[in-house]
Amino acid sequence: MIKTISYKAPCSILIKNEGYLPFHISFPSEETSTPIYWRTGNFENKLIEIGINEKSGSICSIALILPGGIDQKQVKNTIEKKTIQGFPIFQISEWLKETYKDELCEFDVFIKKSSIIIEFSKEKETNFVYTSNNIEFGFDSNSFLIWINIEINKEDAFIFDKILGSQI
């Protein structure tokens, strides 16, 4: 799992459909250096890649490469907790020499109203949330990322049609 150590002011986002990817979200202000990547999933039908600025530790991209199945059930971890307006900075000091870190982890993709939730842990309770524009990052009591909630506005809904059809 990936751990946050701090946060910074919220930043702008750009949501794209890049053909073969269900979606790709970039944070242009964080694309100032070559990213390193945290990749997780079962690496067969589920894979997500989070690009991290190697200098600052903040996210520069999120790409859902293989979503697996998509469920519409209620997600427990989205319960409101302490919310901080900010953008997470992750602890990457122990893997800076690598260009990526692969971790085997089952994650689930859910649809809830007009949002997509990527849940990395069902067992852990949400302790706090960083929110930046229309993306929320949920963390447990040990500061590990346990879910991402992407609110989909009407302007971006067409991008998600590839994986969601008309479910939003």
Rank of each mutant, 00 (worst) to 15 (best):
residue 6 S to R: 00
residue 80 E to M: 00
residue 143 S to M: 05
residue 83 T to C: 00
residue 116 I to S: 04
residue 41 G to N: 09
residue 82 K to T: 14
residue 55 K to I: 12
residue 1 M to G: 01
residue 4 T to N: 13
residue 51 G to H: 02
residue 71 D to C: 00
residue 19 G to C: 00
residue 146 I to A: 01
residue 7 Y to S: 08
residue 68 G to E: 14
residue 78 T to E: 10
residue 4 T to A: 10
residue 29 S to E: 15
residue 25 I to G: 01
residue 100 Y to I: 08
residue 25 I to R: 04
residue 32 T to C: 09
residue 80 E to P: 03
residue 116 I to T: 11
residue 161 D to L: 08
residue 116 I to Y: 11
residue 166 S to N: 14
residue 79 I to W: 00
residue 45 N to T: 08
residue 159 I to N: 15
residue 98 E to V: 05
residue 107 F to K: 03
residue 28 P to M: 03
residue 141 S to K: 00
residue 157 A to G: 10
residue 116 I to V: 15
residue 116 I to M: 11
residue 148 I to R: 09
residue 124 K to V: 10
residue 13 I to R: 01
residue 77 N to G: 03
residue 32 T to L: 10
residue 65 I to A: 13
residue 25 I to S: 07
residue 150 I to T: 06
residue 1 M to H: 05
residue 107 F to G: 00
residue 154 K to M: 14
residue 32 T to V: 13
residue 16 K to F: 07
residue 58 S to R: 07
residue 22 P to C: 02
residue 51 G to E: 14
residue 112 K to C: 02
residue 123 E to V: 01
residue 10 P to T: 08
residue 104 L to F: 08
residue 108 D to Q: 01
residue 145 L to V: 09
residue 14 L to Y: 04
residue 155 E to T: 15
residue 1 M to F: 04
residue 27 F to N: 00
residue 21 L to T: 01
residue 106 E to G: 01
residue 83 T to W: 00
residue 54 E to V: 10
residue 36 I to M: 03
residue 53 N to A: 08
residue 91 Q to K: 05
residue 69 G to Q: 13
residue 18 E to M: 10
residue 127 N to H: 08
residue 115 S to K: 04
residue 134 N to P: 11
residue 66 L to N: 11
residue 73 K to F: 14
residue 166 S to A: 09
residue 106 E to F: 05
residue 154 K to L: 15
residue 6 S to I: 07
residue 122 K to Q: 12
residue 135 I to N: 09
residue 67 P to M: 06
residue 44 E to H: 01
residue 61 S to E: 14
residue 141 S to H: 02
residue 87 F to M: 03
residue 146 I to Q: 02
residue 118 I to S: 00
residue 154 K to D: 15
residue 126 T to E: 11
residue 119 E to Y: 03
residue 93 S to F: 10
residue 123 E to N: 01
residue 107 F to L: 05
residue 59 I to R: 06
residue 24 H to W: 12
residue 114 S to G: 01
residue 126 T to G: 05
residue 46 K to F: 05
residue 73 K to M: 13
residue 65 I to Q: 12
residue 53 N to I: 02
residue 134 N to H: 10
residue 121 S to F: 01
residue 109 V to P: 13
residue 15 I to L: 04
residue 38 W to Q: 07
residue 28 P to T: 02
residue 65 I to V: 15
residue 151 E to H: 04
residue 104 L to E: 09
residue 112 K to I: 07
residue 96 L to V: 12
residue 89 I to P: 10
residue 113 K to P: 08
residue 135 I to T: 13
residue 54 E to C: 06
residue 96 L to F: 10
residue 78 T to Q: 02
residue 14 L to F: 05
residue 85 Q to R: 07
residue 20 Y to R: 07
residue 40 T to A: 10
residue 124 K to T: 12
residue 132 S to A: 13
residue 168 I to F: 08
residue 145 L to C: 07
residue 102 D to R: 09
residue 168 I to N: 08
residue 30 E to W: 00
residue 58 S to T: 15
residue 98 E to L: 07
residue 43 F to T: 07
residue 134 N to G: 11
residue 148 I to H: 10
residue 105 C to M: 13
residue 160 F to H: 15
residue 103 E to A: 02
residue 77 N to I: 06
residue 2 I to Q: 04
residue 59 I to G: 03
residue 42 N to P: 10
residue 89 I to M: 12
residue 118 I to H: 02
residue 123 E to H: 03
residue 127 N to D: 11
residue 124 K to F: 09
residue 111 I to C: 01
residue 80 E to A: 03
residue 138 G to Y: 02
residue 77 N to M: 06
residue 29 S to K: 14
residue 14 L to V: 06
residue 86 G to D: 11
